[in-house]
Design a protein around this nucleic acid. Sequence first.
DNA 1: AAGCAGAAATCGCGCAGTAG
DNA 2: CTACTGCGCGATTTCTGCTT
Length: 788
Amino acid sequence: MATVRVVGTEPLLPHWTDRMGPESWPHWGRLQATLRANPRWKPHQIESVTSESLRVLRHLRDPLRPAPFQGRGLVVGYVQSGKTANYTAVAARAVDAGYRIVIVLSGIHDSLRTQTQLRLERELVGSQAGIGGTDGPGREWGLLTTATEDFRECDPGVLQSDAAFLVVAKKNVSVLARLDRWLEAAQPFLSDRAVLLIDDEADQASINTRGNRASDPAVCEDEEDDGPPPSRTNELIRSILGRIPKASYVAYTATPFANLLVNPAAADREVGDDLFPRDFVVQLPRPDGYTGTEELFGASAQGRDVLRPVPDDDVRALRPARRRKSAEVVLQAEQGALPGSLREAILAFCVAGGVRSLRPSLDGQPHTMLVHVSQRIEDQERIADAIREQVELWREADRQGQRLEPLFQEAWEAFRASVDAPADDAAVVRASIAVMRRLVILVLNSVTGEDLEYEEKPGRHIVAVGGNRLSRGLTLEGLTVSYFLRTTAMCDTLLQMARWYGYRSGYEDLIRIWTTDGIARWFSELALVEQSMRDSIVALGRAGRRPDQMAIRLRGHSSLLLTARNKSSMAVARQDSWSGEHPQTVLLPLSDPGRLQANRALADGFLASLPAALPCHGGLLLRDVAPEAVCDFLRAYWVHEEVVAFRSDLLADWIAERAAAGELTDWSVFVASPGEAPRQASIGGLRVGLARRSRVSSESIGILTDPRHEGVDLPDGPDAYRRAGGSYDADAMRGARPPTQGLLIVYPLDPEPLGVTSTDAVIALALSLPNTSDSATKWIVNSGVSDG
DNA sequence: AAGCAGAAATCGCGCAGTAG
DNA sequence: CTACTGCGCGATTTCTGCTT
């Protein structure tokens, strides 16, 4: 088992960045001025970039120290949350501080590299390009790549110049190999020149998916114990870093799971240490206007049904199970009949387009629907043809003067729940039909090579049918409706989830996702685990600890994500601390009346045994509960069989262990009871209102907890922990929680929106847990890659 | 049932051929 | 001589089918 006990933390030293005075940031000052001149940058955003880039810089090593160093770090952002802005600022500050070469690895696609190059030339380099002239403050820049050309070898002698050098390279084997050779040739000039290597999209291609050659060649002369070499891209990055005496490597990503599960001890004979971020992990703040789990599935979604089910029959119709044997038969049988759910989704897309066109801020902006059913090109063509046929049918009817209004009226009625209607129904329906007339259907894959052309042809309503090219490379602008049927790979689901998030200002209420029950079921749990991981990175930063000294909580991912990603080579040991977390039941045994009734009866007995209840904050608070009572309750509670985020037996064991150590000894139980609830129930002699949560799949709900409830037992109540905007900051509440004090929140849910008839209240649970002393003692390790 | 090998999909590089 | 284009190849990842 990989359990490590930390004996102590290093004392905080004064930071080397303290030597930087306000006058010593010429490059950063210029970049900041550029941002201020751009009206798209609001003052508080510039403020955020300023402080966050300094925060990252402080984690880098001092470039002026003579001793060699190899820094490794990770910066975690949200999708489209200004990661590029952050590393541009970090690069500017790093050059000011004395770094001499900045290498940016910008993903694996050429289009992204060009984009990044242009942006860095504009913002970072400005007018100081070219080696020579010494005008202006600070150093000028030497560019080793251009917008049209990736890195090519040149005379390493240019490094003798006093300029700062910029390389924007793609993570491609031949490009990186050239860079590697060039750095080898440049060896004599590198000894005193510190290099900052920024690895954008670090979860792609940079991860070692193969192995490491044993560190001591003498031990294994024969090929037996010698592992396979690392995957090529990973090997080259490590080789490049190895050639640089003073190197800081910073990985940027929005989905850092694989990066954090790299074995910190992994090393290879030829290219040395793997890329585990052993020095720091930084979580960038969540940008405002960002649409995430809470907005789409939590309390602020206000009963909108974002996830729509796709029946199994439709899945079968769209994905022929057999390829070789009966491909022709399937083609014959499937004459253009569009499954009902896909038809519905396209109508919904037209309606969403209609609503958008009636909102002045969105009219004329690009609008996209994503259809991802199969990665096989022929399937994509077939589905696109079927969609075209259906749309053509509507258009023909339209031309012949048939009334399409009832059809679109129906679609609008199914869509309109808690959508801010911009006009009366008839106008929305008319606008929707107008969108249908202009619908563009594109197939995006390597064969068709079609492009979305947002720049050239603005204001289109695009139905994009595609495979991998859609789920990875391309940015979909104005994405509202998705039709997504990838049933197997969970990490794809997570990547996909990331595309529904991001800036959706002005139309976050129009987002709808058609998907299978299977995907929807895992969806909210994945979202919780992701949030838990971000929380723990923030906690790690606050505690001033290094990544390998503290648990990065990835419970659940081990089974959900990584097994799917690389089954054989990544075995993961689990850690068992819930310190500072807020586990909750989002997957409920809704199809098992026996369990629901047992939980109902259990809650009855439990609450009746507790001391008097005090009404407050939208519920009833029961104080002074013994930890044993909570443990017994949790052990007797029936969870859904497939649950990973709320394992009640493990939680009970952990609480008992903490209680024995003098923590988590003082419990409160809070029963949520919204005053405005349409229905009530009597549980344990308490009259409570039933909270309403909608289903996202047959057995799971979106987000259970109301952030406000996590602070009901704190001295000042939840109202002391509100953000500027008025929302409740549940993280702050958990942070303020004394280590002795735990909170169990019982949510009696209204069975009606859950489609349950076997009981009068579905009992769901959540816990709010303080930071406990064991949070640093156990950690996850990926033990598969090198020390097998 | 689990694990492994091979196929398929996708994308970019590099080379060779061709047109101007 | 230079620029464009088509084609083959390698890298990476996921899915499928076969074997044990």
